[in-house]
């Protein structure tokens, strides 16, 4: 039985109802590769990761990215990178950074000499 719709354009397609267990319509990888999208809002600001697109090439990925991530607000530039080309760290390896916030010798706040100066000024070494 052909699909009857309120929309005459759908009725004109004379579609059959989908079987309960049809063959897969899409084969693996029919939706191509994935690209990571980076978006720059204004000149002078940094590019930020905003999401992904599926595309058959870098050029098409940029076309889709403009449509998907640039259709509102401000945009001056975009980059796309094939996900294959991104080497990402494992979240499990975060512990190599676990002590970084404690490395006060890398921090301006790690250097306090005012006490020393005050003490020195009070001492008889100060002329």
């Amino acid at each position: 039985m052909k699909i009857k719709s309120l929309d005459p354009r759908v009725s004109r397609l004379e579609l059959d109802a989908v079987d309960k267990q049809p063959d897969a319509v899409l084969k693996p990888e029919e939706h191509w590769e994935t690209y990571q999208v980076f978006h720059q809002r204004k000149r002078g600001e940094k590019h930020s990761s905003v999401g992904i697109v599926h595309a058959p090439s870098a050029e098409m990925a940029l076309v889709f990215a403009k449509e998907q991530y640039g259709r509102r607000g401000e945009t001056v530039n975009m980059w796309i990178v094939n996900t294959r080309d991104v080497l990402a760290m494992d979240y499990d390896d975060y512990d190599v950074f676990a002590t970084t916030p404690d490395k006060m010798y890398r921090d301006p706040a790690g250097y306090k000499v005012n006490d020393k100066i005050a003490e020195f000024k009070k001492s008889n070494l100060h002329v």
Binding site: W32, Q36, S49, P56, M60, N82, T83, V86
Partner: peptide, 19 residues
């Protein structure tokens, strides 16, 4: 389907997106 097939490249290889 024909558009997707026409644009598909032989060396394409899907990778799970990062985020």
């Amino acid at each position: 389907a024909w558009v997707r097939a026409a644009l598909r490249k032989a060396d394409q290889h899907y990778v799970t997106p990062l985020a």
